[in-house]
Design a protein around this nucleic acid. Structure first.
Lengths: 109, 109
DNA sequence: AACATTAATCGTAATATTGCAATGAATAGA
DNA sequence: TCTATTCATTGCAATATTACGATTAATGTT
């Protein structure tokens, strides 16, 4: 027990859940917002911006990288992170799609 | 350690993360999809639809209820669940807002 | 080469989540 | 009342997540 039973659900459902999970932490939300706002890249200054330890930030960055939402390129000793525009758009569309179909006829509850 | 340091982040950031967390499980995605599709309410038939135990489904329903995404009204011995249209719309708008600002000028990475 | 800086990784602890059997509470029907 | 049905809750085990100090790897600087 304890592990999510992914086998019970469709690929899409697991995918959407994984996308949501990537956003399911305020630090990752904050990181993405900083990356969007600064437009250009932000390197390790995220550690200063947010109040978390370097190891913790690095871990969150890794997760965001794993789901493809951000990219990182080495720039000397530091690493330059930025939003992956393609993935960003896909996320936007996925969530829009999911919430699109509004239950109009509220016949119950 | 181990607990999310919510104090470091803004209310909005924590809110969005909480919203994402509610969607961060395929079972909850599936439940919401069933509730949207059936339009009317679905009671305990969710246990048959998805392959999870009754207690597990009940727990997921509780979480969805706690974030306001669904409502449940008692109907005899069974409970009728349905989407909360207001919250649904709010979620839609929140996520759309978050993903709205696309990084146009991709000058880096 | 020696040192400093930056960031990933490792190891560990604390906490949260997932899942289910068992139990409990409430109502419907006999 | 007794029983069946439906769902919430409790208690527990397994797993996942969050966080950080310490270490490591890589590069830049002197």
């Amino acid at each position: 027990m304890g592990a999510t039973k992914t086998g019970l659900f469709s690929k899409k459902q697991n995918e959407l859940a994984a996308m949501a999970k990537a956003l399911a932490h305020p630090a990752r939300i904050a990181i993405l917002q900083v990356l969007v706002k600064t437009n250009a890249c932000v390197c390790g200054s995220l550690v200063d911006e947010l109040g978390l330890a370097q190891a913790t930030i690095s871990q969150h960055l890794k997760e965001l990288k794993q789901v493809g939402l951000i990219q990182g390129t080495i720039e000397g000793t530091s690493v330059c992170y930025c939003i992956n525009p393609k993935a960003w758009l896909q996320y936007k569309e996925f969530f829009a799609m999911f919430f699109k179909e509004l239950p109009e006829n509220k016949t119950c509850c």
